[in-house]
C-alpha cells in the first residue's frame, strides 16, 4: 500500500491545539486532568461513567428544549391587557422586512442549534457507551456538533430575559410561565453536560475501528 496515500497518525503524541506544543501522551485516570504545560489548555478530562450521564442529560435537554419552545414563557399585564409569549414567538419577533433574517437567526441560536447539538451527541455517544462500533458518519456528526458549540446560545437567552425583565418591570407586571422554569433548568443541564464531556475521549473512541 502506498503510504503517501494513507498517512499514519501519531497516537503516541498529543499536541495542544491552542499553542502547538507537542507532548508524549500520558492518559490521565478518571477524575484527573491533563493540561498543556505551556499555555494551560485542558487537553484530557476523563470521568467515570461520563457517557451514560451525558446521554441521560442529553435526552432531558432535548425534551426541555421542545417543551420550553412551545409553552408560554413570560406573561405581561398592564391596564387590564395581558400578553404571553413562548420562546419561539420571542425568537420570531423580528417580523417586518429585512428583519426576518434576524428572526430566523435568533430561532436557530436559541432553539435549533442547541437541539441539533444534543441530537448529534446522542447519535455519536449511544453506540460508544453500548460498546458497539461507532455509528456511520459519527466523526462528521461530532465535528458538526463541535463547530456549532459557540453558536448555541440558550444560556445567553436566559440572561437576556433577566435584563429584559429589569427594563420592563417599571412598565408592567411580568409573570413567569412554565416554560421559563423549564428553560432555566435547561441552562443548568447544558452547563453540567459541557463539563462532563471529555472531547479527547470521544474522539479516541471514534478512532478505534480504523485502528483495528
Amino acid at each position: 500500500m502506498d503510504t503517501s496515500e494513507t498517512p499514519v497518525p501519531r497516537t503516541d503524541l498529543i499536541v495542544c491545539p491552542q499553542c502547538d506544543a507537542a507532548w508524549t501522551l500520558a492518559r490521565p485516570a478518571a477524575g484527573e486532568r491533563a493540561i498543556c504545560q505551556r499555555c494551560g489548555t485542558v487537553l484530557i478530562t476523563p470521568r467515570a461513567k461520563a457517557g451514560k450521564q451525558i446521554i441521560a442529560l442529553s435526552i432531558a435537554i432535548a425534551v426541555l428544549i421542545l417543551a420550553a419552545a412551545v409553552f408560554p414563557f413570560l406573561t405581561i399585564s398592564a391596564g387590564g391587557v395581558t400578553n404571553s409569549v413562548s420562546v419561539l414567538q420571542a425568537a420570531l419577533a423580528f417580523s417586518d422586512g429585512p428583519l426576518v433574517v434576524l428572526s430566523l437567526a435568533t430561532a436557530a441560536l436559541i432553539v435549533f442549534f442547541p437541539l441539533t447539538r444534543v441530537l448529534l451527541s446522542l447519535y455519536v455517544l449511544v453506540p460508544i457507551v453500548r460498546d458497539q462500533p461507532p455509528a456511520r458518519y459519527a466523526s462528521q456528526a461530532f465535528r458538526v456538533s463541535e463547530a456549532l458549540r459557540p453558536w448555541s446560545m440558550a444560556e445567553i437567552f436566559v440572561i437576556g430575559c433577566a435584563v429584559a425583565l429589569i427594563k420592563i418591570s417599571d412598565l408592567a407586571d411580568v409573570s413567569f410561565g412554565p416554560a421559563f422554569w423549564m428553560f432555566s433548568a435547561l441552562v443548568l443541564l447544558v452547563i453540567v453536560n459541557e463539563t462532563y464531556l471529555c472531547r479527547w475521549s470521544v474522539w479516541n473512541a471514534l478512532s478505534k475501528p480504523a485502528a483495528s
Partner: peptide, 10 residues
C-alpha cells in the same frame, strides 16, 4: 435577545 423579548412581549 433583549430586543426580541421586549418586542414580542410588550
Amino acid at each position: 435577545f433583549v430586543v426580541a423579548i421586549m418586542s414580542s412581549l410588550v
